[in-house]
Write a protein that binds this DNA or RNA. Sequence first.
DNA 1: CCAAAAGTGTTGGTCGTACACCCATGC
DNA 2: GCATGGGTGTACGACCAACACTTTTGG
Lengths: 232, 232
Amino acid sequence: MGETLPQSQLAVAVDVMLTTACEGELRVLLSQRKAAPYAHCWALPGRMVTYQETAENAAHAVLEELLPGTGAALEQLYTFSGVNRDPRGRVVSVAYLAMAPWERVASSMAGSPMRAFTLVENSRLLLRDGSLTLQESHLAFDHGEMIRMGIERLRGKVEYTDIAFRYLRDPDAFTLAELQRVYEAILGRPTGSGNFQRMIRNRYLERGLIRQTARKTRGGQGRPAALFEMVN
Amino acid sequence: MGETLPQSQLAVAVDVMLTTACEGELRVLLSQRKAAPYAHCWALPGRMVTYQETAENAAHAVLEELLPGTGAALEQLYTFSGVNRDPRGRVVSVAYLAMAPWERVASSMAGSPMRAFTLVENSRLLLRDGSLTLQESHLAFDHGEMIRMGIERLRGKVEYTDIAFRYLRDPDAFTLAELQRVYEAILGRPTGSGNFQRMIRNRYLERGLIRQTARKTRGGQGRPAALFEMVN
DNA sequence: CCAAAAGTGTTGGTCGTACACCCATGC
DNA sequence: GCATGGGTGTACGACCAACACTTTTGG
């Protein structure tokens, strides 16, 4: 990673923005760079694309190293081709957005250099993990731009796609309250209480994407919640 | 174009899907390939990205050759990185969607090898120019996939962005009927008559994107139409 | 019984659609 | 006047937000 590329040759890389939702918060996984360029800056995981693989293959492989044994959902985000985006040479990067449930991310984080940063504010891009707060200038390359774009994409698509379901711990047994916390994490604001149920039922139950099971939660406080499952 | 690339090296290219709207039809510009691979197949214009330019620069340059003196609107569509998408070697292509008014496209087509194909059907991808009908198998590389994806993108974004306005002959003097024909071209179906006016007024006038002028059309049949202009 | 969480009913506003109608021009 | 296309009024249903209310559990 420290060497420069041969002159007048373009390389293709992938960067993966792995996101997760926990307790109504949206989190992004970053690792701190050790070597130049951008030493000590925080960066999205990524690598060069080799001759034998597609960009999507490469993104999946990056994700597999990060989160072994996960078929996390991937979506192509945008391709960044700024001439000076990497000081080592000309690298065109295809950015991918990945979505995984917090539980699987957390279990893979022990012994990993990655840290999960919570999105505090999107306009100035503030990310926090414990007492450490990052802003865009602490991020390597154009990764700040990637992250802002990724958040925007999530927010835009949450209303008319099934991305929210990719964050559920168990797609075959979830409550509407769990789903609601995911929505709140993505949108960054509380959603009305009672109406959320109706919205989900209208939008996804009728369209056959999810199905209500006969099971219910047990042991918690309050009335038990109906468990739903995804179809397919 | 006919030679192969050095082994184990990736190249980056751009392909431009130039679209235009005329008389309620959506059209795509294609040229017929003369040499292998895909000789006699129809293809989107494109070229390799050089070391000194971004992908977007390259796409603009392709467009500038095709349609000189036009600042046609460009939007990144998707990056295609299939390992065998180009038999000459490994080429990753960043596809761009371009939007221009028919009048400017038509005036640039004289003496050009490009032809404007009307989208007849999107599911099977049928394109027609005069008596010549193309289907996906007549298209080079993965350009059929690009085109289908481009149409989908247009249809999805027409409702909540300003892409429809990019097809207007004169953004500073257009009627709502002209805009409606653009909508019908993109959506591929007629939109209700009277309600379109209200929709546009609600969606764009109130939000300050367009402004009604004091001018009106003259000379045509029927009642003269109010002329609108885009703000900025 | 009380607290807490799940879920429903009700109301009022906004928006899209259908369709009837009026308006301003050329002939 | 009449045909033609531009533009408005009105009515209905779908959907969404607010918020009060009922239901079902644990303590």
